[in-house]
Design a binder for these strands. Structure first.
Length: 269
DNA sequence: AGTACGTCCTGATCGC
DNA sequence: TGCGATCAGGACGTAC
């Protein structure tokens, strides 16, 4: 599922295929509920003629800065992916929307489960809710993470999934980070020691960095059409499979209705 | 405010 | 072998 590494991979892909400087000429929306702002008519009428000037990311949101000062915001949801292909090239399955460009190509928004969303906003706050720490920023340190977790009694796994606490983690990398830090997912956020918070910060950064490096290699190897997703975590996501670190069978529980995998041998309560 | 849960979706997988 | 039931989860609305 698209989490920070997948969205950042999409951002780098859009940079590398030369989206910057291109003008949108038409928006074809195949599932109207995907457009969150403005209404469908204004979105479709508003996009043509706009030039992409910047390609940024905040958490799991892709931010395409336009020459009008507006931003085209894309969220890939659970199953979303982005491709830029010549219009004449056969489309992959499950393309829900296409945004045509002035150079004969089109941006294809793939989204089998239709959980992805698009916004065209003059003010970013209309699309992007309050975001927490950006884990790949230089300033991301154990003190900030500790402050974000202070006074929180929810399970640490649930807190890692809250975008207002830390931006960009999803179910898979949250499990991966806790595994690397050897922290049980049901530990209360406020119960972590400073040492554990520091370890968790390292686990988060490591999980994301390793995944991103793998995506960078895949883009080079697969140019111009690299794979959309890679399995970049080390936890066996199947109960009973041996932990790669200590051999203990992995355990599966549910936290906030999310499948959560951890090793009861090296992630103690 | 903090916490928890149902809802939206459909391809993949499971079980009889 | 086939087909219906179940599972998967990011973000948001709602409830306590």
């Amino acid at each position: 599922m698209p989490e920070l590494p997948e969205v950042e991979n999409a951002r780098r892909y859009l940079m590398e295929i030369g989206l910057a400087g291109r003008t949108f000429t038409m928006a074809n929306i195949g599932w109207s509920k995907s457009v969150r702002y403005p209404d469908l008519e204004d979105f479709v009428l508003g996009l043509p003629g706009r030039i992409v000037e910047a390609i940024n990311r905040r958490g799991k949101y892709l931010l395409l800065g336009l020459n009008t000062g507006e931003t085209l915001v894309l969220h890939l949801g659970m199953t979303g992916g982005i491709r830029v292909h010549p219009k004449t090239q056969p489309a992959p399955s499950m393309v829900r929307h296409t945004l045509e460009l002035d150079d004969g190509r089109e941006l294809r928004f793939i989204d089998p489960r239709k959980f992805g969303h698009l916004w065209l906003v003059d003010d970013l706050q209309k699309a992007v809710p309050e975001m927490g720490l950006e884990p790949l920023d230089r300033g991301f340190g154990p003190e900030l993470l500790a402050r974000a977790l202070a006074g929180r009694g929810a399970p640490i796994k649930a807190l890692l999934l809250e975008q207002s606490v830390i931006a960009g983690l999803g179910n898979l990398y949250a499990d991966e980070a806790l595994y690397l830090a050897r922290i049980h997912p049901e530990r209360r956020g406020s119960s972590l020691t400073p040492e554990e918070v520091a370890g968790l910060k390292d686990g988060i950064v490591r999980a994301l960095t390793v995944a991103l490096a793998q995506y960078d290699r895949s883009r080079q190897a697969g140019w111009p059409d690299p794979p959309l997703g890679l399995a970049t975590w080390t936890i066996p996501r199947k109960a009973g499979e041996p932990c790669v670190r200590c051999g203990t069978p992995m355990e599966s529980i549910r936290i906030r209705a999310r499948g959560t995998y951890f090793c009861p041998g090296c992630q103690m309560l």
